[in-house]
Protein backbone atom coordinates (compact mmCIF):
# COMPACT_ATOMS: atom_id res chain seq x y z
CA UNK A 1 0.00 0.00 0.00
CA UNK A 2 1.28 3.43 -0.84
CA UNK A 3 1.43 5.86 2.01
CA UNK A 4 0.67 9.51 1.44
CA UNK A 5 3.47 11.73 2.71
CA UNK A 6 2.11 15.14 1.74
CA UNK A 7 -1.40 15.99 0.61
CA UNK A 8 -2.27 19.48 -0.57
CA UNK A 9 -6.03 19.95 -0.61
CA UNK A 10 -7.30 23.05 -2.32
CA UNK A 11 -4.41 25.05 -0.89
CA UNK A 12 -4.87 28.73 -1.60
CA UNK A 13 -2.75 31.69 -0.58
CA UNK A 14 -3.59 35.27 -1.32
CA UNK A 15 -1.16 37.98 -0.27
CA UNK A 16 -2.29 41.52 0.20
CA UNK A 17 0.58 43.95 0.04
CA UNK A 18 -0.04 47.69 -0.21
CA UNK A 19 -3.65 47.17 -1.22
CA UNK A 20 -2.69 44.82 -4.05
CA UNK A 21 -3.85 41.23 -3.96
CA UNK A 22 -1.61 38.50 -5.30
CA UNK A 23 -3.01 35.01 -5.63
CA UNK A 24 0.25 33.19 -5.08
CA UNK A 25 -1.26 29.69 -4.90
CA UNK A 26 -4.64 28.79 -6.33
CA UNK A 27 -6.55 25.75 -5.11
CA UNK A 28 -3.57 23.43 -5.27
CA UNK A 29 -4.51 19.79 -4.90
CA UNK A 30 -1.64 17.35 -5.10
CA UNK A 31 -0.50 14.19 -3.37
CA UNK A 32 3.08 13.11 -2.79
CA UNK A 33 3.72 9.56 -1.71
CA UNK A 34 6.17 8.31 0.81
CA UNK A 35 9.58 7.63 -0.70
CA UNK A 36 9.00 9.76 -3.77
CA UNK A 37 11.53 12.16 -5.22
CA UNK A 38 9.12 14.87 -6.26
CA UNK A 39 9.91 18.03 -8.19
CA UNK A 40 7.97 21.27 -7.95
CA UNK A 41 8.75 23.35 -11.01
CA UNK A 42 7.69 26.77 -12.11
CA UNK A 43 9.03 30.10 -13.26
CA UNK A 44 9.89 32.93 -10.84
CA UNK A 45 6.88 33.87 -8.77
CA UNK A 46 4.96 30.70 -9.59
CA UNK A 47 4.22 30.05 -5.92
CA UNK A 48 6.72 27.33 -5.07
CA UNK A 49 8.18 28.93 -1.97
CA UNK A 50 4.72 29.93 -0.78
CA UNK A 51 3.51 26.35 -1.09
CA UNK A 52 6.45 25.06 0.92
CA UNK A 53 6.06 27.86 3.45
CA UNK A 54 2.74 26.48 4.65
CA UNK A 55 4.54 23.30 5.75
CA UNK A 56 7.58 25.14 7.10
CA UNK A 57 5.46 27.43 9.28
CA UNK A 58 6.22 30.71 7.51
CA UNK A 59 3.02 31.11 5.49
CA UNK A 60 -0.57 31.17 6.72
CA UNK A 61 -2.83 29.57 4.14
CA UNK A 62 -5.86 31.58 3.01
CA UNK A 63 -7.91 28.45 2.31
CA UNK A 64 -7.46 24.72 1.90
CA UNK A 65 -5.01 22.58 3.78
CA UNK A 66 -1.80 20.59 3.74
CA UNK A 67 -1.52 17.27 5.51
CA UNK A 68 1.75 15.61 6.31
CA UNK A 69 1.29 11.91 7.03
CA UNK A 70 -2.29 12.84 7.78
CA UNK A 71 -1.39 15.63 10.22
CA UNK A 72 -2.66 19.11 9.49
CA UNK A 73 0.26 21.48 8.87
CA UNK A 74 -1.45 24.39 10.62
CA UNK A 75 -3.19 22.74 13.54
CA UNK A 76 -0.54 20.10 14.24
CA UNK A 77 2.41 22.28 13.29
CA UNK A 78 4.66 20.97 16.03
CA UNK A 79 4.30 17.34 15.00
CA UNK A 80 4.51 18.16 11.32
CA UNK A 81 7.74 20.08 11.89
CA UNK A 82 9.21 17.06 13.58
CA UNK A 83 8.61 14.97 10.48
CA UNK A 84 9.91 17.53 8.01
CA UNK A 85 13.31 19.08 7.36
CA UNK A 86 13.26 22.24 5.29
CA UNK A 87 16.15 23.89 3.49
CA UNK A 88 14.96 27.40 2.70
CA UNK A 89 15.69 29.27 -0.51
CA UNK A 90 17.32 32.21 1.24
CA UNK A 91 20.30 31.80 3.48
CA UNK A 92 18.94 32.18 6.99
CA UNK A 93 21.75 30.91 9.18
CA UNK A 94 21.95 31.97 12.80
CA UNK A 95 25.38 33.40 12.20
CA UNK A 96 25.54 36.41 14.50
CA UNK A 97 27.36 34.64 17.27
CA UNK A 98 27.26 30.92 16.48
CA UNK A 99 29.92 29.08 14.52
CA UNK A 100 29.25 26.33 12.00
CA UNK A 101 29.11 23.51 14.47
CA UNK A 102 27.07 25.47 17.01
CA UNK A 103 24.50 26.28 14.34
CA UNK A 104 23.89 22.57 13.88
CA UNK A 105 23.96 21.78 17.59
CA UNK A 106 21.39 24.48 18.41
CA UNK A 107 19.18 23.36 15.53
CA UNK A 108 19.24 19.86 16.95
CA UNK A 109 18.25 21.29 20.30
CA UNK A 110 15.16 22.99 18.88
CA UNK A 111 14.07 19.52 17.78
CA UNK A 112 14.45 18.17 21.29
CA UNK A 113 17.73 16.33 20.90
CA UNK A 114 19.77 16.21 24.10
CA UNK A 115 23.16 17.98 23.97
CA UNK A 116 25.29 14.87 23.63
CA UNK A 117 23.15 13.44 20.83
CA UNK A 118 22.98 16.87 19.21
CA UNK A 119 26.77 17.09 19.11
CA UNK A 120 27.09 13.54 17.82
CA UNK A 121 24.71 14.20 14.93
CA UNK A 122 26.23 17.58 14.15
CA UNK A 123 29.69 16.05 13.93
CA UNK A 124 28.50 13.19 11.75
CA UNK A 125 26.85 15.60 9.32
CA UNK A 126 29.86 17.92 9.31
CA UNK A 127 32.04 15.00 8.29
CA UNK A 128 29.58 13.67 5.75
CA UNK A 129 29.17 17.07 4.11
CA UNK A 130 32.85 17.92 4.05
CA UNK A 131 32.59 20.70 6.59
CA UNK A 132 34.59 19.16 9.39
CA UNK A 133 37.59 21.42 8.82
CA UNK A 134 35.28 24.42 8.98
CA UNK A 135 33.42 23.40 12.13
CA UNK A 136 34.83 26.30 14.14
CA UNK A 137 34.52 28.83 11.32
CA UNK A 138 32.02 31.63 11.22
CA UNK A 139 29.43 31.50 8.48
CA UNK A 140 30.95 34.49 6.74
CA UNK A 141 34.15 32.50 6.24
CA UNK A 142 32.32 29.84 4.23
CA UNK A 143 32.07 29.70 0.46
CA UNK A 144 28.63 29.67 -1.16
CA UNK A 145 28.85 25.94 -1.68
CA UNK A 146 29.81 25.32 1.93
CA UNK A 147 26.84 27.38 3.08
CA UNK A 148 24.55 25.26 0.91
CA UNK A 149 25.93 22.10 2.43
CA UNK A 150 25.54 23.54 5.92
CA UNK A 151 21.92 24.43 5.20
CA UNK A 152 21.29 20.92 3.93
CA UNK A 153 22.95 19.45 7.01
CA UNK A 154 20.74 21.65 9.18
CA UNK A 155 17.61 20.40 7.43
CA UNK A 156 18.73 16.84 8.19
CA UNK A 157 19.77 17.28 11.81
CA UNK A 158 16.63 15.67 13.25
CA UNK A 159 16.60 12.86 10.69
CA UNK A 160 13.27 13.90 9.17
CA UNK A 161 11.00 11.61 7.16
CA UNK A 162 10.48 14.27 4.53
CA UNK A 163 13.11 16.60 3.14
CA UNK A 164 11.93 19.80 1.49
CA UNK A 165 14.54 21.65 -0.54
CA UNK A 166 13.78 25.06 -2.00
CA UNK A 167 16.09 25.55 -4.98
CA UNK A 168 19.08 23.95 -3.27
CA UNK A 169 21.29 24.17 -6.34
CA UNK A 170 20.46 27.73 -7.45
CA UNK A 171 23.70 29.45 -8.32
CA UNK A 172 25.80 26.37 -7.63
CA UNK A 173 28.63 25.50 -9.99
CA UNK A 174 28.67 22.20 -11.86
CA UNK A 175 30.78 20.41 -9.29
CA UNK A 176 28.63 21.49 -6.36
CA UNK A 177 25.46 20.69 -8.23
CA UNK A 178 26.71 17.16 -8.94
CA UNK A 179 27.69 16.80 -5.31
CA UNK A 180 24.27 17.95 -4.10
CA UNK A 181 22.56 15.66 -6.59
CA UNK A 182 24.53 12.71 -5.31
CA UNK A 183 23.62 13.60 -1.72
CA UNK A 184 19.93 13.99 -2.57
CA UNK A 185 19.87 10.69 -4.45
CA UNK A 186 21.54 8.95 -1.56
CA UNK A 187 19.01 10.38 0.90
CA UNK A 188 16.12 9.34 -1.30
CA UNK A 189 17.60 5.87 -1.64
CA UNK A 190 17.69 5.68 2.16
CA UNK A 191 13.95 6.15 2.15
CA UNK A 192 13.50 9.88 2.63
CA UNK A 193 10.68 11.47 0.73
CA UNK A 194 12.05 14.49 -1.11
CA UNK A 195 10.19 17.53 -2.33
CA UNK A 196 12.51 19.65 -4.45
CA UNK A 197 11.81 22.95 -6.11
CA UNK A 198 14.01 23.96 -8.97
CA UNK A 199 14.38 26.12 -12.04
CA UNK A 200 16.72 23.63 -13.62
CA UNK A 201 14.63 21.30 -15.71
CA UNK A 202 17.62 19.13 -16.32
CA UNK A 203 17.83 18.66 -12.58
CA UNK A 204 14.21 17.60 -12.31
CA UNK A 205 14.60 15.20 -15.23
CA UNK A 206 17.70 13.76 -13.69
CA UNK A 207 16.40 13.31 -10.15
CA UNK A 208 12.64 13.33 -9.89
CA UNK A 209 10.30 10.42 -10.30
CA UNK A 210 7.41 12.84 -10.70
CA UNK A 211 7.13 16.56 -11.18
CA UNK A 212 4.42 19.15 -10.86
CA UNK A 213 4.51 22.33 -12.87
CA UNK A 214 3.13 25.46 -11.24
CA UNK A 215 2.47 28.63 -13.12
CA UNK A 216 1.10 31.78 -11.54
CA UNK A 217 -0.09 29.72 -8.61
CA UNK A 218 -1.86 27.16 -10.73
CA UNK A 219 -0.97 23.52 -11.15
CA UNK A 220 -0.64 23.02 -14.89
CA UNK A 221 0.79 19.50 -15.12
CA UNK A 222 1.76 16.55 -12.94
CA UNK A 223 3.47 13.32 -13.82
CA UNK A 224 6.75 11.55 -14.46
CA UNK A 225 9.04 13.77 -16.58
CA UNK A 226 9.03 11.25 -19.49
CA UNK A 227 5.28 11.19 -19.59
CA UNK A 228 4.98 14.95 -19.59
CA UNK A 229 7.49 15.20 -22.40
CA UNK A 230 5.53 12.68 -24.45
CA UNK A 231 2.41 14.67 -23.92
CA UNK A 232 3.92 17.64 -25.66
CA UNK A 233 4.90 15.67 -28.73
CA UNK A 234 7.86 13.57 -27.77
CA UNK A 235 11.00 13.65 -29.87
CA UNK A 236 11.48 15.82 -32.92
CA UNK A 237 13.74 15.93 -35.95
CA UNK A 238 14.64 19.33 -37.32
CA UNK A 239 15.64 19.53 -40.96
CA UNK A 240 17.27 22.76 -42.06
CA UNK A 241 16.60 23.23 -45.74
CA UNK A 242 19.07 25.00 -47.91
CA UNK A 243 16.52 27.25 -49.54
CA UNK A 244 14.16 30.05 -48.73
CA UNK A 245 10.49 29.19 -48.23
CA UNK A 246 9.69 31.13 -51.41
CA UNK A 247 12.13 29.04 -53.42
CA UNK A 248 10.83 25.91 -51.76
CA UNK A 249 7.30 26.71 -52.71
CA UNK A 250 8.40 26.67 -56.29
CA UNK A 251 10.33 23.46 -55.94
CA UNK A 252 8.95 20.51 -57.78
CA UNK A 253 7.06 17.99 -55.68
CA UNK A 254 6.56 20.21 -52.67
CA UNK A 255 2.85 19.89 -52.96
CA UNK A 256 3.15 16.25 -52.03
CA UNK A 257 5.40 17.19 -49.21
CA UNK A 258 2.99 19.81 -47.97
CA UNK A 259 0.25 17.21 -47.96
CA UNK A 260 2.42 14.94 -45.88
CA UNK A 261 3.28 17.77 -43.60
CA UNK A 262 -0.36 18.49 -42.97
CA UNK A 263 -1.10 14.82 -42.57
CA UNK A 264 1.19 14.56 -39.55
CA UNK A 265 0.11 16.52 -36.54
CA UNK A 266 2.86 18.54 -35.00
CA UNK A 267 4.85 19.02 -38.20
CA UNK A 268 5.78 22.56 -39.05
CA UNK A 269 7.58 24.27 -41.88
CA UNK A 270 8.86 27.70 -41.07
CA UNK A 271 11.82 29.82 -42.07
CA UNK A 272 13.30 27.00 -44.06
CA UNK A 273 13.18 24.66 -41.11
CA UNK A 274 11.08 21.54 -41.24
CA UNK A 275 10.25 20.09 -37.83
CA UNK A 276 8.90 16.55 -37.66
CA UNK A 277 7.81 14.63 -34.62
CA UNK A 278 9.66 11.35 -34.14
CA UNK A 279 13.21 10.07 -34.32
CA UNK A 280 15.60 9.40 -37.17
CA UNK A 281 14.60 5.74 -37.09
CA UNK A 282 11.00 6.69 -37.71
CA UNK A 283 9.81 5.46 -41.20
CA UNK A 284 7.75 8.63 -41.68
CA UNK A 285 10.79 10.79 -41.02
CA UNK A 286 12.97 8.73 -43.34
CA UNK A 287 10.31 8.89 -46.01
CA UNK A 288 10.12 12.64 -45.73
CA UNK A 289 13.88 12.87 -46.09
CA UNK A 290 13.92 10.82 -49.26
CA UNK A 291 11.01 12.84 -50.58
CA UNK A 292 12.99 16.02 -50.04
CA UNK A 293 15.90 14.47 -51.91
CA UNK A 294 13.61 13.49 -54.76
CA UNK A 295 12.21 17.00 -54.91
CA UNK A 296 15.75 18.29 -55.25
CA UNK A 297 15.67 20.26 -52.02
CA UNK A 298 19.12 20.39 -50.50
CA UNK A 299 19.46 19.71 -46.79
CA UNK A 300 21.86 21.83 -44.82
CA UNK A 301 21.63 20.08 -41.47
CA UNK A 302 19.58 17.57 -39.55
CA UNK A 303 19.15 17.75 -35.77
CA UNK A 304 17.59 14.88 -33.94
CA UNK A 305 16.29 16.50 -30.78
CA UNK A 306 14.99 14.51 -27.88
CA UNK A 307 12.09 16.40 -26.37
CA UNK A 308 12.90 17.54 -22.87
CA UNK A 309 10.99 18.66 -19.90
CA UNK A 310 12.02 22.14 -20.90
CA UNK A 311 9.77 21.93 -23.95
CA UNK A 312 6.83 20.98 -21.79
CA UNK A 313 7.65 23.71 -19.38
CA UNK A 314 7.96 26.38 -22.02
CA UNK A 315 4.79 25.25 -23.73
CA UNK A 316 2.70 25.07 -20.59
CA UNK A 317 3.89 28.20 -18.85
CA UNK A 318 3.82 30.29 -22.03
CA UNK A 319 0.38 29.00 -22.98
CA UNK A 320 -1.15 30.44 -19.84
CA UNK A 321 0.40 33.85 -20.10
CA UNK A 322 -0.65 34.36 -23.72
Amino acid sequence: MNEVAIAFEGLTKTYTAKGKRVEAVKRLTLTIERGEFFGLLGPNGAGKTTTIGVIAGTVKPTAGSVRVFGLDAVRDYRKVHKLVGVMPQEEALDSWFLNVREILVYSAGYFGLAPREARRRADALLKRFDLWDKRKAEVKELSGGMKRRLMLAKALIHDPEILILDEPTAGADVALRRQLWALMRELNAQGKTILLTTHYLEEAEELCGRVAILDQGELVAVGPPEELTKRVGGDVVEIELDARPAALEAAKGLKALAAKVKAKAGTTLKDGKLVLPGTLEDPAVLETLSELARAGVKIRAIHAHRARLEDVFVELTRGLKA
Partner: peptide, 23 residues
Protein backbone atom coordinates in the same frame (compact mmCIF):
# COMPACT_ATOMS: atom_id res chain seq x y z
CA UNK B 1 -8.91 13.83 15.29
CA UNK B 2 -6.02 13.07 12.95
CA UNK B 3 -8.02 11.31 10.31
CA UNK B 4 -5.76 9.61 7.81
CA UNK B 5 -2.65 9.78 9.96
CA UNK B 6 -0.56 6.65 9.75
CA UNK B 7 0.37 5.09 13.06
CA UNK B 8 4.07 4.93 12.23
CA UNK B 9 4.28 8.58 11.30
CA UNK B 10 2.30 9.47 14.39
CA UNK B 11 4.79 7.71 16.61
CA UNK B 12 7.66 9.60 14.98
CA UNK B 13 5.78 12.86 15.27
CA UNK B 14 5.21 12.50 18.99
CA UNK B 15 6.94 15.13 21.08
CA UNK B 16 7.81 13.92 24.56
CA UNK B 17 7.85 16.20 27.55
CA UNK B 18 11.61 15.80 27.67
CA UNK B 19 12.01 16.83 24.04
CA UNK B 20 9.75 19.77 24.59
CA UNK B 21 11.81 20.84 27.60
CA UNK B 22 15.09 20.48 25.68
CA UNK B 23 13.73 22.61 22.84
Amino acid sequence: MNAGATPEALSKARISLRESAIA
